[in-house]
């Protein structure tokens, strides 16, 4: 009964405040928005301008690689894998040139609706970004208040740390003493 009431309530709410999202876009593909504010007399004009993306020409896609196309035609997959899965790159947490593409200018990982990755890859890349930040490899992509130089960090954080990528999908990271357990 309660579920029915809740469903009816949400239906009525949707009818009143229509919050349906149209996923059809009329803007040109591979453009990004830029918000510009300008002062004209006594009016402040805020406009959204579409600008060409700076990384369109440098983009690497599996369609561009000839070897991967042959493999794709032979096997039929219902749902195509995301670009990171199909590229098949072995990314480590020290590959800062790749990881910095998934990050805002303050070093925060972008959400999945922007990166367009699958669930597993998003988790993997997100964890590797954290590893790179903790190891102090992307210190120019950090918030202004953070301690940039790893040598100036506090206690154990000032020493070099490396991470093991195989632990990303482990439920529980094994401790060295586990060898002696029965």
């Amino acid at each position: 009964m309660a579920a029915l009431v809740r469903a009816g309530f949400s239906l009525a709410k949707n009818a009143i405040f229509s919050t349906s999202i149209r996923s059809i876009s009329t803007t040109k593909h591979l453009n990004i928005k830029e918000i510009r504010t300008s002062l004209e007399g006594s009016n402040i004009i805020i406009e959204g301008v579409t600008v060409p993306s700076p990384r369109t020409e440098l983009l690497i896609r599996p369609e561009k690689l000839n070897t991967l196309i042959e493999n794709k035609s032979t096997e039929s997959i219902e749902k195509p894998p995301c670009y990171m899965c199909s590229l098949g790159l072995d990314v480590k947490h020290t590959d800062v040139l790749i990881l910095s593409q998934f990050v805002r200018s303050d070093g925060c990982m972008l959400p999945r609706r922007i990166t367009g990755l699958c669930r597993r890859q998003q988790k993997k890349i997100g964890k590797m970004v954290t590893m790179a930040q903790k190891a102090g490899l992307m210190i120019n992509l950090t918030p202004a208040y953070s301690k940039k130089d790893p040598k100036k960090r506090w206690n154990y954080k000032k020493f070099n740390t490396y991470f093991d990528e195989t632990t990303i999908f482990m439920k529980r990271i094994p401790k060295p003493l586990d060898r002696f357990k029965r």
Binding site: S25, T27, K28, H29, L30, N31, I32, K33, T50, S53, R55, T56, L58, L59, I60, Y83, M84, L87, L89, V96, L97, I98, S100, Q101, F102, R113, I114, T115, G116, G136, L137, M138, I139, N140, L141
Partner: peptide, 22 residues
């Protein structure tokens, strides 16, 4: 470290992710 790599190399490195249009 990323800040030790020259800016030209970072800019011209092949990109994997593309921003959505909006």
């Amino acid at each position: 470290r990323l800040d030790h790599i020259p800016e030209e190399v970072v800019k011209n490195y092949p990109k994997v992710m593309e921003y959505p249009e909006d």
